[in-house]
Simulated assay, not measured.
Amino acid sequence: MMGPELERLVMLLAKLPGFGPRSARRAALSLLQKREVLMRPLADALLAAAEAIRPCSVCGNLDTTDPCGLCADARRDRATICVVETVGDLWALERAHAHKGLYHVLGGTLSALAGQRPEDLSVEPLLRRAASGEVREVILATSATVDGQTTAHYLAGRLRDTGVAVTRLAHGVPVGGELGYLDDGTLTAALASRRPA
């Protein structure tokens, strides 16, 4: 039904997050129907991004400059580093304008099942940054999964000797959340993380 070029396009699109074989076929068809206004500009943008975008040697963010724009921004609070699992997590915090300091991208979480060990993550560069004397606080912004919690616990232990304050993101009831709709784990975390009113 499809030639090898179209089959390869669909197969590659299906590897994108949120895409399966059916949505990949629909996307390929849409691209082919809009070759000049969508497909060719997208191909050019993909090629340019592949050639120009690199990980920041300081924090691990993706950018065309090294250090990245966030690390180079003199207006950012250099005494605070927010540790995230992925660049996507960094982008989410930036989109929310929730953090005015610097970042550190781990590149994942510790995971026995996936075989992710501390040496597979960007732990040593974080420890060097924390021990530099310029940093006062490291915020562990890992997810509330078992692997995220394990990673945060491991990092807190390793950061203890640096003398910086180590904090965690609060977990619990989301803004606008109704107690009756929350799962047991979220309710337990919310009660454990309670604070004075």
Rank of each mutant, 00 (worst) to 15 (best):
M1D: 13
M2Q: 12
L6Q: 10
E7A: 15
E7K: 14
E7S: 15
E7P: 06
L9I: 10
V10G: 04
V10A: 12
L12D: 12
L16I: 11
L16E: 09
P17Y: 10
R22V: 10
S23D: 00
A27N: 09
L32A: 15
L32C: 15
R35L: 14
E36V: 07
E36H: 12
M39D: 02
P41E: 06
A45K: 07
A45R: 10
A48H: 12
A50R: 13
E51L: 12
A52E: 14
A52R: 15
I53M: 10
S57V: 00
T65I: 09
P67Q: 02
C71D: 01
A72I: 07
A74G: 05
A74V: 11
A74T: 10
R75F: 06
R75Y: 03
R76G: 13
R78P: 14
T80A: 15
V83I: 10
T86S: 15
G88E: 14
G88K: 10
L90A: 14
L90P: 04
A92E: 03
A92Q: 04
H97K: 15
A98L: 11
A98P: 07
G101M: 05
G101I: 04
H104P: 03
H104E: 00
V105D: 00
L106C: 08
G107D: 03
G108R: 08
T109C: 11
Q116K: 11
R117N: 02
P118T: 05
E119F: 08
L121H: 06
L121I: 04
V123F: 10
V123L: 13
L126G: 01
R128F: 00
A130Y: 10
A131M: 06
V135D: 01
V135A: 08
R136V: 07
L140S: 00
S143R: 11
S143I: 07
A144G: 04
V146A: 06
G148V: 04
A156P: 00
A156V: 02
G157T: 04
R160H: 11
D161R: 13
G163F: 03
A165K: 13
T167E: 09
H171T: 09
H171I: 08
G172N: 07
V173S: 03
V173W: 06
Y181D: 13
D183F: 11
D184V: 10
T186W: 11
T186I: 13
T188W: 11
A189M: 14
L191K: 03
A192W: 01
